Simulated scan of single mutants.
Amino acid sequence: MLQRPVELANYMSAEFGKTLDRFGLRRSSGRTGICFDNAMAESFFGALKNERVSRVTYLTREAARQDITRYIEFWYNRKRLDSAVGYRPPRGVHADYEKLRIVA
């Protein structure tokens, strides 16, 4: 079994936290066992499973990859309304963000 240094294996360690504080950075996740860190990812994968994957039988991994990619790129990002961003498609929200970023 591959052994990792303790500081790499546990990114929530006190030493890691001190390093982030020193550089004025914040952690991208909370304490161990806090479920809210994964809420958006869980929501996405739940939608993917319920809206697409569980409704299709894939004969090959490649067929699954292509179909899931199409779902994400042409349906989820462009047309599907997302309650987390005001019932707008994620791609539209991202485009608005980019416009504001350029203006700023």
Rank of each mutant, 00 (worst) to 15 (best):
48 L>Y: 01
7 E>M: 06
65 R>V: 02
15 E>K: 07
24 G>W: 01
28 S>R: 10
39 A>P: 02
55 R>W: 09
93 V>L: 10
99 K>Y: 14
5 P>S: 08
27 R>C: 05
48 L>I: 04
7 E>T: 05
40 M>L: 13
56 V>P: 01
76 Y>S: 02
34 I>A: 10
54 S>C: 14
4 R>G: 00
93 V>Q: 02
12 M>T: 07
24 G>Q: 03
21 D>Y: 02
11 Y>E: 03
58 Y>F: 15
31 R>E: 12
94 H>T: 06
67 D>Y: 01
75 W>K: 03
92 G>T: 08
99 K>Q: 15
60 T>R: 08
72 I>M: 00
77 N>Y: 03
80 R>Q: 01
73 E>M: 12
87 Y>E: 14
83 S>G: 06
57 T>D: 00
84 A>G: 02
37 D>A: 08
79 K>Q: 14
91 R>C: 14
20 L>N: 00
55 R>L: 15
86 G>L: 09
89 P>M: 07
31 R>L: 10
70 R>Y: 13
13 S>R: 07
17 G>I: 00
7 E>Y: 13
58 Y>M: 09
47 A>S: 14
65 R>Q: 12
9 A>V: 03
56 V>T: 15
67 D>A: 04
29 S>E: 07
27 R>Y: 08
2 L>M: 11
37 D>N: 11
16 F>G: 01
35 C>F: 09
40 M>N: 07
56 V>E: 10
63 A>D: 10
45 F>I: 12
49 K>V: 10
88 R>K: 11
68 I>E: 03
22 R>M: 01
30 G>V: 03
15 E>P: 00
53 V>H: 02
49 K>R: 15
19 T>Y: 07
20 L>V: 02
84 A>P: 03
92 G>K: 03
62 E>D: 14
38 N>Q: 09
61 R>D: 07
34 I>F: 11
102 I>H: 12
61 R>W: 08
101 R>F: 12
27 R>F: 05
85 V>R: 03
69 T>V: 09
15 E>L: 10
57 T>Q: 14
14 A>T: 14
44 F>I: 08
54 S>F: 02
70 R>G: 02
48 L>Q: 01
5 P>N: 12
33 G>H: 09
60 T>K: 08
65 R>G: 01
5 P>H: 13
32 T>F: 03
56 V>A: 05
6 V>C: 03
81 L>F: 07
16 F>M: 06
4 R>E: 08
43 S>V: 12
69 T>G: 00
101 R>E: 13
40 M>D: 05
42 E>R: 12
77 N>P: 03
34 I>K: 13
45 F>Y: 09
40 M>Q: 05
30 G>P: 01
68 I>V: 15
101 R>Y: 10
19 T>H: 00
96 D>L: 04
20 L>I: 03
64 A>R: 15
73 E>H: 07
56 V>N: 09
1 M>Y: 01
